[in-house]
Amino acid sequence: MAGPPLLELDRLSTHYIAAQGARVVRAVDGVSLRVEAGETLGIVGESGSGKSTLALTLLRVLPPAARIVGGRMLLDGEDLVQKTEPEMQDIRGKKIAMILQDPMASLNPLFTIGNQVAEPIRVHEHETRRTAWQRARALLNAVRIPSPEARVKQYPHEMSGGMRQRIVGAIGISCEPRLLIADEPTTSLDLTIQAQYLNLLRELQRQHGLALIFITHNLGIVAKMCDQLAVMYAGRVVESGPVSRIFNAPVHPYTKALLNAIPRMDDPDRRLNAIEGQPPNLAALPPGCSFAPRCALAMPRCREAAPPEFTPEPGRTAHCWLAEPAAAAGRLIVSGAV
């Protein structure tokens, strides 16, 4: 892990701001993360925890009401927050690419597949139409679309959902980006196609040395795909670190609860624990730790002060008072109790 990481987020915050500034929604709040080249980071959390806003922040394609209000995001040491819009246009699709949630809606119904796959190649690499289309056919081949020669001339509605998702994937890797963000790319696919697609992504990652940010609420996929994991709650990363370490010894009660909510094949009798309470209202977060109202282990101080970042072990972080070094002794007992 020598040298600077590919991507480093430093206390990044994106808020939704109403017109008169009356209501502020802290969708992303002080997020710090690192992604090394070729590595896969999984980001998990409930709907509305700020995962998708974080992804859109990385590309700076936020809706008009959202603003990046603080922090830095360094790509190869260059701060993307400071870039101008034309500079960002050169980065989007070229250095950072993204795959959206809904493959059925992500392709423009009025243009051919070839046109849409070749488009970023023409814009970013100024290739001729001919060369760009040649590369588009090669890309379709790479994502296992049969007979790409014919498919490039077809329109999105002539393809199945799985095929469209692979085409969106092909668009993502068309300019050989360093980082690919996948925002729940498999939620709308059925299980077999899901597995195929995940394998495909992994293969592409190996071939192109891509770093991957995988946004999902499915911890099973995280276990299969990711090296690193970041758990988001109410706009913050509450716990991060290597997947295997977090799965074996979660620190934050929220992470534990999430892991407890996974059904397991090897232990069908185990009770599934749903997380009690309401998901947080991002416009009116409680003082202190935002998970405290739902936390079984909440202490008085949790409701008074938000926990800072602790380092329970090298390479891991946790925002929880239980991870405070002084409390670490007690933590072992507590985790046994859960």
Binding site: Y16, I17, A18, A19, Q20, R23, V25, A27, S47, G48, G50, S52, T53, P63, P64, A65, A66, Q101, D183, L282, A283
Partner: peptide
């Protein structure tokens, strides 16, 4: 995305005018 999108819609300047 659902919640931020909802928030974005509600907090657009147009909504404020409304």
């Amino acid at each position: 995305m659902s919640i931020p999108a909802e928030i974005a819609r509600r907090s657009s300047p147009l909504a404020a005018v409304r």
